[in-house]
Design a protein around this nucleic acid. Structure first.
Lengths: 222, 222
DNA sequence: CGATCTTTTGAAAGAGGTCAATTGAAGTGG
DNA sequence: CCACTTCAATTGACCTCTTTCAAAAGATCG
């Protein structure tokens, strides 16, 4: 009797909300990506739309000299890789071993009628991506390091929908590239939140966090 | 014999690309906003869709303590205020005296059929907003101050489509809030670009810029 | 169990922010 | 139209937050 099966437990064995996106049942495959493997690259043609069955994916852009900005983390249940254009505007990689459902783009967007059939549902998806990007723009442009880390924890707490322990699938470097910081700064901010009694680390690795004081944490989320 | 009439000269006297957005001719009004006046606020209901006839608009989000992040500048020809949801996710203000065409939201989105009719065209618009937000995310997360200012000048050079003089309608404070910097830093970066021979100021105010070396400028645009 | 990767922490450096002064432009009212 | 005030932009000096560099401890993986 899990508290929330919303994201983690699909009701149907081998399909998903990709049907809902298309507006009709579509043929889906499943695929497993090992950790660190690229799923698609920036500028590549959009061939498939994905939904995460288990695991985590990062989508990111890179500058020529290697600076990386992670645009979003995709968690179980999330649909990603959906573009209204023909080319991916960023790359996507599995952070941990990740299982996805995928369906060919043309199953969703009718080549003859353009996006007409699914336009409404794709619009909803693109809109929620835009909303996320706008909130993140505010964070990157105007928040301090500790505010960024607090916002990240609150986002993950919400999206991982785990009642007690926050099990972060990504490493400090990923968090840093998401928040526009360096990994040392992320580590220092987490340590400060720990020292202030807002969170604590459990287990052997430092990726399992208990939020002791969500109220105090939320105060950083101006 | 203007070089580009694309943005500045509508072919029809009192309507605009808002027709194209709706997919059929819609009733448009014209309206004038004085400089500094708010056009709509964050969280307000979406009542109208706008196109800029002349002038410039900033859309922005604010934090509780007054920190502001400008998400975008809207220039003549740009459509803004279009949301697929019912509420504005940010505020919009006229930077200078601004004339707009506007049409009621329900002229474009059919209440009965949802967004169905215009979904495809709104999707294009939302997608291009998302693309802009993503590029800006990379800038805010990973670029230095001079790279940000260079990117801003290149964006304005492109969008203002002015062959020689770049007439910036916004002040340093606006540029700063767009680039995630302070106005003094923007000023210093511009001075450095001037000292490097990449640009020069003309006229009495410092908002008229000539780009002397677009190639060198582009080198900052990694 | 040794090698590699991840994270933390300290010390020093640096980029950008803050504060302040100055200059210049623009708007206002007599 | 001009004095006056206010607003905008630049520049300098100093400060702070974040980055950089380095070391060490801890975790993970063959």
């Amino acid at each position: 009797m899990l508290v929330s099966r919303r994201r983690n437990a699909p009701q149907r064995p081998s399909s998903s909300e990709l049907d809902a996106l298309a507006g009709h049942p579509v043929f889906c495959s499943e695929f497993k990506y090992r950790r660190g493997v690229q799923i698609f690259g920036e500028g590549e043609a959009v061939e498939y739309f994905f939904q995460i069955k288990s695991g985590t994916v990062r989508s990111y852009k890179m500058l020529a000299d290697g600076r990386r900005q992670i645009m979003a983390f995709h968690l179980p249940g999330d649909i990603f890789g959906v573009e209204s254009g023909a080319l991916h505007r960023f790359a996507a990689e599995a952070i941990v071993e990740t299982n996805v459902w995928l369906t060919a783009r043309q199953n969703v967007v009718d080549e003859k009628h353009g996006l007409a059939v699914a336009a409404n549902r794709i619009l909803k998806l693109v809109t929620s991506n835009l909303q996320h990007a706008e909130i993140h723009t505010l964070l990157l442009g105007r928040k301090t390091s500790i505010e960024r880390v607090a916002a990240f924890l609150i986002e993950m707490d919400l999206r991982l929908s785990s009642p007690d322990v926050l099990r972060l699938p990504m490493k400090r470097r990923d968090i840093a590239d998401y928040l526009g910081l360096r990994l040392e700064t992320v580590s220092r901010s987490l340590s400060e939140l720990r020292d202030r009694g807002i969170l604590t680390f459990i287990g052997q690795c430092q990726r399992e966090i208990i939020l002791l004081d969500r109220k105090k944490l939320a105060e950083f989320n101006c």
